[in-house]
Structure formats: structure tokens, C-alpha cells
């Protein structure tokens, strides 16, 4: 296990410092968000709908620009270099690859062609066949269906393809947005097992956004909890699993029984003030 505990002294692969994101010049979505991802680790970003998790990933990958969003303050450092404001294709070339929410495979392209598209920015094109084999080894189902249009794959297979497509780019940092979305529990287990293997076997650093806190914390080294556009809680996966608030609001393991929605709102407001 390559569990690297975040220590203040080590150089993080990715660091966000007081990042502020505005949509359409007026809507403030991230309000001074800071987080770090250590090289070789899996970090997870938890939080409810609308907390700003996807926006955080898009700010890193440069996809924010498409939606009229922009990083207006703070810094995003990848491998020591500031990357905020770079175009998405430049960021991919530096080694960051975002698997966007909802799989988004190219439906009319075959599985094979989807993988070729994933390798778009690669320079060492001679090694594509080798990498394609590696993807097929992770996901034998894709090998069986390599000549089929991706639109006809099942939801689970499409998620596999979305991951495989990302692997073809050989990223140093993989940003995953809700890989469990819309999948049956058994499939989710399988997908997360592969994510863990990718991290272990190729050393790819992963930042994982998930609604399903239980499974995310089961493979992550470190976790952040977001509310209202900033981090309200952070710690190792073990610490977060033991944290009472997390148990109650994200893992559904509260010991005081069910709470009303009003209490939840109260909790959020309190957290916002505290942070």
C-alpha cells in the first residue's frame, strides 16, 4: 500500500490555494477553497449537491471556461506550476485528465475509437496498442465490444469506457466526477476496485468527487468535505470515517437516530460560520 500521509513538508502534486470561482461574472461558487493532493495518493472530495465539487474539478481541468466560469482569485498549482486560466487542452497536455460526470462516451464512435480519442494528446503514439491492451486487461468487457458503437454499451460498460479513455492519456492526475452515478451497487464496487488498482499499479494520483461517501472513503487516503463552496472538514480517510458529523450526514450512520431536515440545515449553517 502506498499510503502517503499528507505532511506539511512534502510537495503536493496539486494544490489549490484560496480559489475563488465566479460564473457569468456574478455567481460566486467557490469561496476561497484550499486543498492539496499528494503524489501517488487518492484524495476524495465529499459534499452534498451544489456544494461546488464539480466546479472544483472543472476549475482544475480548465473546463470551467466552456460554462462561462472563471477562477477569479487564488492559485491552482500542479507540480509547482500555476495552471489556472490555461486552456483545457494545455492542461491535459500537462497530465491532468478529468473524467466528466455522467460518462459522456462518444456514442457513435466504436469503443476502440473512443480509446483513440482519449489518447489525442499523446506524443508517443507508437505505444498506443500496448496501452489499449492494458485498458482491455482492466476491462475485459471492453475488449469483447471493441468494434461496437459506444452508445449501445450498458451504463456500467460506458463508465468502464470513460475510465479506459482516461487511461489512454496516461495522466499523472486523474479527476473523477461521480463514477458511481446511476450504477447498480455491485457495479460500483467493481469500478472502485479498478480505480484502486489503477492508483496502485500505475501510481496515478487521483482526486475523486463522490456522493457515495462510504465507498469513496474505502479507497481514499485523504478526504475533504465541502459545503457552500469551501472546505469545512478534512482528514485522513480513517479520521473522516470516525468523525461523528461525517458518520451522520454522509455515511448515514448517526447514533442519535434520524434527524430532521431542519437540523441538517442548521448544521450546514453552523459549519459555514465556523470555517
Amino acid at each position: 500500500m502506498s499510503r502517503s500521509e499528507p505532511a506539511a513538508s512534502s510537495e503536493p502534486l496539486l494544490a489549490l490555494e484560496n480559489v475563488e470561482v465566479l460564473y457569468d461574472d456574478v455567481i460566486l461558487v467557490l469561496r476561497g477553497l484550499s486543498l492539496r493532493v499528494e503524489p501517488g495518493s487518492i484524495a476524495t472530495l465529499l459534499g452534498s449537491n451544489g456544494a461546488g465539487k464539480t466546479t472544483t474539478l472543472k476549475a482544475i481541468s480548465g473546463l470551467l471556461e466552456v460554462e462561462d466560469g472563471a477562477v477569479t482569485d487564488g492559485a491552482i498549482r500542479f507540480d509547482g506550476h500555476e495552471i489556472q486560466g490555461l486552456a483545457a487542452d494545455r492542461i491535459v497536455r500537462r497530465g491532468i485528465f478529468q473524467v466528466v460526470e455522467g460518462r459522456r462516451v462518444f456514442e457513435h464512435l466504436t469503443v476502440r475509437e473512443n480509446l483513440i480519442a482519449g489518447a489525442y494528446t499523446r506524443r508517443d503514439r507508437g505505444r498506443l496498442a500496448e496501452d489499449m491492451d492494458a485498458v482491455y486487461e482492466y476491462f475485459p468487457r471492453l475488449a469483447e465490444r471493441s468494434a461496437q458503437a459506444a452508445g449501445y454499451l450498458s451504463g456500467g460498460e460506458q463508465q468502464m469506457l470513460a475510465l479506459g479513455r482516461a487511461l489512454m492519456a496516461r495522466p499523472r492526475l486523474l479527476l473523477l466526477d461521480e463514477p458511481s452515478l446511476g450504477l447498480a451497487p455491485l457495479l460500483v464496487e467493481g469500478i472502485f476496485e479498478i480505480i484502486r488498482r489503477i492508483n496502485e499499479e500505475s501510481g496515478t494520483t487521483i482526486l475523486l468527487v463522490e456522493q457515495n461517501a462510504r465507498i469513496a472513503l474505502s479507497i481514499a487516503d485523504f478526504g475533504y468535505v465541502m459545503e457552500g463552496g469551501r472546505i469545512v472538514l478534512e482528514g485522513t480517510a480513517d479520521e473522516l470515517r470516525g468523525n461523528e458529523d461525517v458518520r451522520e450526514f454522509y455515511l448515514g450512520l448517526g447514533e442519535v437516530g434520524r434527524r430532521s431536515y431542519r437540523d441538517v440545515k442548521h448544521y450546514r449553517r453552523r459549519k459555514r460560520w465556523l470555517s
Binding site: 483545457a88 487542452d89 497536455r93 462518444f106 457513435h108 464512435l109 475509437e113 489525442y120
Partner: peptide, 26 residues
């Protein structure tokens, strides 16, 4: 369109622009 990098990229963009952008297709 079937084999080359730019050809596949063209069809990818036609299918899903955001996803194409996310893989660095310009």
C-alpha cells in the same frame, strides 16, 4: 475519419463537445 487522430477527434467533437474538450481535443 476512421483511423487518423484528427479524423477521430472530428467525429468525437460532433458527438460530445465537452467530453472532447476534456481529452484535450482542440
Amino acid at each position: 475519419f476512421r483511423r487518423s487522430r484528427d479524423g477521430v477527434a472530428m467525429r468525437a467533437i460532433a458527438d460530445d463537445q465537452l467530453a472532447a474538450l476534456s481529452m484535450g481535443i482542440s
